[in-house]
């Protein structure tokens, strides 16, 4: 019984693996398609928003795999662009609650796996 059970389990696992594999490939494929910035929430002025998204994209592409450097870069760029006290978070998974100055928040996804949060608070 145990054997049967175990084999059954294995089969189930196999099936699961097979089932997972298909979406996995699909996932990869779509991830390639996801290679564009998706602004989730932004209350900036239109002009600034476009610029900020550009900065995030350049910074993340410049430092592939190095979130810290990317975040540092984004922060510096934004500081230079519109004054002090910008903060940036780049990562694949995190939770946050931030206090930001109104009309100075950008929350976006990029590349299908990155969440980027840029805000201003002094």
């Amino acid at each position: 019984m145990a054997d049967i059970g175990s084999t059954a389990n294995l089969a189930a696992a196999d099936k699961g693996a097979a089932g997972a594999a298909a979406p996995g490939t699909d996932d990869k494929e779509s991830k390639r398609n996801f290679n564009y910035p998706l602004v989730k929430i932004c209350d900036m002025a239109e002009e600034l928003r476009v610029e900020a998204v550009d900065m995030v994209v350049t910074a993340v592409e410049k430092h592939p795999g190095n979130f810290e450097a990317a975040a540092q870069n984004i922060k510096e760029l934004m500081d230079k662009r519109c004054g002090n006290s910008w903060h940036a978070v780049v990562g694949e998974g995190y939770g946050f609650e931030v206090t930001h100055e109104m009309r100075n928040l950008l929350y976006m996804y990029f590349g299908g796996n990155l969440g980027v949060l840029v805000w201003k608070a002094s």
Partner: peptide
């Protein structure tokens, strides 16, 4: 004026 904003980033939400 300030406002707080919170969310959670994870792979499935992205």
């Amino acid at each position: 004026p300030q406002r707080t904003f919170s969310d959670t980033v994870n792979q499935w939400s992205i």
